[in-house]
């Protein structure tokens, strides 16, 4: 092995090339078009003129309106990520460690909601929390309340909707890494005198971090890039940066502005990913020495 490392190793690049070529052709080049577009001039609705001007960028950099949207987006994404991690780790651990014979069923159940359209799933929260929803109907029937409670169309319903949609991503990522851990490690730690909790904290938790990290990254990024959930479950104050992009491209037909906003979001999320890959990259390195 040592010999092979010394000279340039072609193999990883052979393996990587199909994916790299596909992404370059279908993402990088189109995004380059978008970048060029961000300097264009929007003359009228849906009419753009090729140009090289910084109008769109100056507007983004100087208008407080966009900062508010960025702040809102990051705040909400953080909340959703944290809650999803807290809610998701334990079930992932359970699935990985259970002696339940039909383990695959638990996993399948997690993915099942995906097979009903995302929109139906999101809308169904209205049937639970709304005026005509399950909770209000039940409480009215039991006589606990006289008038239906207002629970819909606020920040919390948006968070609930997001977590519901993205939690499976979190659980599956954590599960995959927990399942890859050598099962003799935790018992081994305990035979060395560690308590169950210590064994978990010292052995299992660190080893599952790549999965947890991947799950968090995914949920964060997916939340930050969405726009449909706030539209369906949110009130007037609930929106994300993605809604600005959608408005610019679809509603205002101002593609240059939409392109500039997209690139902004891309760069911001790119920073998050770089930070993540630095962190997790270090961890993986550390693990190799252990």
């Amino acid at each position: 092995m040592a010999l092979e490392v010394a000279k340039f190793d072609k193999r990883p690049w052979v393996l990587l090339s199909p994916a790299l070529v596909t992404i370059t052709a279908l993402v990088v080049i189109p995004m380059a078009f978008m970048l060029a577009y961000s300097f264009y001039l929007n003359v009228d609705l849906a009419v753009d003129k090729p140009a090289f001007q910084f109008g769109n960028w100056i507007e983004i950099a100087t208008d407080k309106y966009y900062y508010v949207a960025i702040w809102k987006t990051f705040r909400l994404s953080m909340i959703v990520t944290l809650l999803a991690a807290i809610l998701g780790y334990v079930p992932a651990y359970f699935i990985a460690m259970t002696r339940f014979r039909h383990k695959w069923m638990l996993l399948l159940l997690l993915i099942m909601p995906f097979w009903i359209s995302f929109i139906i799933r999101t809308l169904s929260w209205i049937h639970i929390l709304g005026h005509d929803g399950a909770i209000n109907s039940l409480l009215l029937y039991l006589g606990v309340i006289r008038h239906p409670m207002d629970m819909m169309y606020n920040q919390y319903t948006v968070i609930v909707g997001f977590i519901h949609v993205f939690l499976p991503y979190m659980i599956l990522n954590i599960y995959v890494s927990l399942d890859g851990i050598d099962r003799n490690l935790e018992p081994a730690a305990r035979t060395l005198g560690a308590t169950g909790w210590q064994a978990f904290r010292e052995v299992t938790l660190p080893l599952s971090l790549p999965g947890l990290g991947a799950g968090c990254l995914l949920v964060f990024v997916l939340t930050a890039g969405s726009y449909v959930t706030p539209l369906i479950l949110g009130g007037p104050n609930d929106f994300l940066f993605g809604n600005l992009i959608y408005d610019a491209i679809i509603t205002e037909l101002n593609w240059p502005m939409g392109a500039a906003l997209s690139i902004t979001l891309l760069v911001l999320l790119g920073v998050v990913v770089i930070v993540y890959s630095r962190l997790m990259g270090l961890r993986q390195l550390a693990k190799a020495f252990a």
Partner: peptide, 29 residues
């Protein structure tokens, strides 16, 4: 190999692109 971190980021990067943007970008292309 060299540039591994970069490659990882690159492979995951499509997730970062909001779908509306990806959709329109690909159409322009």
């Amino acid at each position: 190999f060299r540039g591994k971190d970069l490659m990882t980021t690159f492979l995951i990067s499509p997730v970062l692109v909001p779908e509306t943007v990806m959709a329109v970008g690909l159409l322009i292309f």
